[in-house]
Amino acid sequence: MSVWRVILSVLFPPLAVYDKGCGSILIVLILTLLGWIPGVIAALIILNKGKQ
């Protein structure tokens, strides 16, 4: 996970997971609309899982 992805996931979480698939974008977008913090947490989790 690069520093730019972390910064992007804090500023606009759905854009940070654009290459992880449509489902990930929708989940993060819905969580971001419900609250900024859940969206950021979900984006960081999805980005971290992709690295393993």
Rank of each mutant, 00 (worst) to 15 (best):
M1A: 09
M1V: 10
S2Y: 01
V3P: 09
V3K: 14
W4T: 13
R5Q: 05
R5L: 02
V6R: 01
V6L: 02
I7D: 07
I7S: 08
I7Y: 05
L8D: 12
S9I: 00
S9F: 00
V10N: 01
L11G: 08
F12G: 01
F12M: 04
P13V: 07
P13L: 06
P13I: 01
P14N: 03
P14K: 01
L15M: 04
A16F: 00
A16L: 03
V17N: 03
V17F: 07
V17W: 02
V17E: 02
Y18H: 08
D19T: 05
K20R: 13
K20L: 15
K20T: 09
G21N: 15
G21R: 09
G21F: 11
C22I: 13
C22Y: 15
G23E: 13
G23H: 12
S24R: 13
S24E: 11
L26Q: 09
I27V: 15
V28Q: 04
V28C: 09
L29T: 10
L29S: 15
I30A: 15
I30N: 14
L31Q: 02
L31F: 06
L31K: 06
T32K: 06
T32E: 09
L33G: 12
L33C: 14
G35H: 06
I37Y: 03
P38H: 09
G39L: 05
V40K: 03
I41Q: 04
I41E: 02
A42M: 10
A42I: 08
A42K: 07
A42S: 13
A43L: 02
L44W: 12
L44P: 09
L44V: 03
I45R: 09
I45G: 11
I45A: 12
I45K: 13
L47N: 00
N48S: 15
N48R: 07
K49V: 12
K49H: 14
K49A: 08
K51D: 04
K51M: 14
K51L: 12
